[in-house]
Amino acid sequence: MPDPLPTHAGPFALGTFRFDAEPFPGLVTGARVRDLSDLVPSVRALVEDWDRWFPRLDSLTDGDSHDLADLDVLAPIEPGQILQSGANYRKHVVDLVAAEKESVHGATPDEARADAEKMMDERIRNGVPYVFLGSPRAMCGPYDDIVLPELGEQHDWELELALVIGKSGRNIPADEAMSYVAAYTICNDLTTRDRLYRPDLKAIGTDWFTAKNADTFLPTGPFLVPAAFVGDPGDLRITLRHNGVVRQDESTKDMIFDIPRLIAYVSTTTTLRPGDLLLTGSPAGNGAHWGVFLTPGDVVEAEITGLGHQQNTVRSHA
């Protein structure tokens, strides 16, 4: 585990850990982790009964515990669905649209940016989120190695705020949506850019399965921090460093569709259930923007206000 130990907002957080053998659900208070396996089999089971468990957690800090530094920190929860929001940060999307208008349509930089800004204003007023599904098999722990797949070369980072659903709902009104959020965590939603579009099936468009779901391509955690402790999720800082260089550094204020609108939108299609994970999009500053992609030996460090930090070393599949 990186030094210093990750910190979290509030008096406690939740996670999944390993000491000698089997993973166990743990209650994190500072540098100590209380083993909850005598009470509940997993963090997922706890979240599935969130309204009953959350008020009790503060009283469970005493008991058998471990030093956090002695534990393997795993992905904090095994989710049900993983719902992923694309193109959800204004500056990021404006940069992409403006670049296309310059290179493809011959607009000047000022014209391209003005047109892109106008498009985003219209999208905020009348548009809807863009959401797709990810695979839980892509998840890994916050300090695990990122293993690059054999195919593809443009392996990219995308740091995101993720929320964990705490109760079931369908067709959830936006003004009630925040009551469905149990906790927040960090996800780095990696993408192999040169496998995103299928040259053999151009009319179909993007291949999200292939580009985003390689094993270890979703570092998650270290913790689930209860929503009650996080403050305003629309005002958190998202920061990613690649080999020590800051590449992403943005506030969640830049989201095009905020969390209530995302929850309302996805719940018109699918019933949300406790343990579902909803990623809220990634801000400007990915590798494609910088012209730099992940290679073996790289180190990726990521943090979001109050949620702890990740540190992953990149290695080859071989």
Rank of each mutant, 00 (worst) to 15 (best):
V73H: 08
W290L: 13
E158H: 01
P222T: 09
A288E: 05
T216M: 07
T206I: 10
G291M: 10
H242Q: 05
S42D: 07
G306D: 04
E303A: 14
P199C: 10
R170K: 13
R273Y: 14
R193L: 14
T268S: 10
P4H: 04
P129G: 06
E150I: 14
T252A: 07
E176L: 15
A214C: 11
V73K: 03
G244F: 10
M1E: 02
S267W: 06
A203P: 00
T252K: 09
R237F: 10
R44P: 01
N188K: 02
L71Q: 07
D64Q: 09
A214N: 11
D58Q: 11
L74W: 01
V97G: 00
L148C: 06
A264I: 07
W53A: 10
W157Q: 02
I82F: 02
E250T: 14
T313R: 14
L133Q: 05
L279H: 00
D38F: 07
T206N: 03
L159G: 03
D110H: 11
N188A: 02
P219W: 03
M178W: 01
N213F: 04
F54N: 02
P25E: 11
M1G: 05
M120K: 07
V292A: 06
V47P: 00
W50L: 11
V47G: 01
V181E: 00
E153L: 15
T252F: 08
A116L: 12
L161I: 10
N88R: 04
F229K: 02
P274R: 05
P23C: 11
D72L: 12
D194G: 08
D235K: 13
L5E: 05
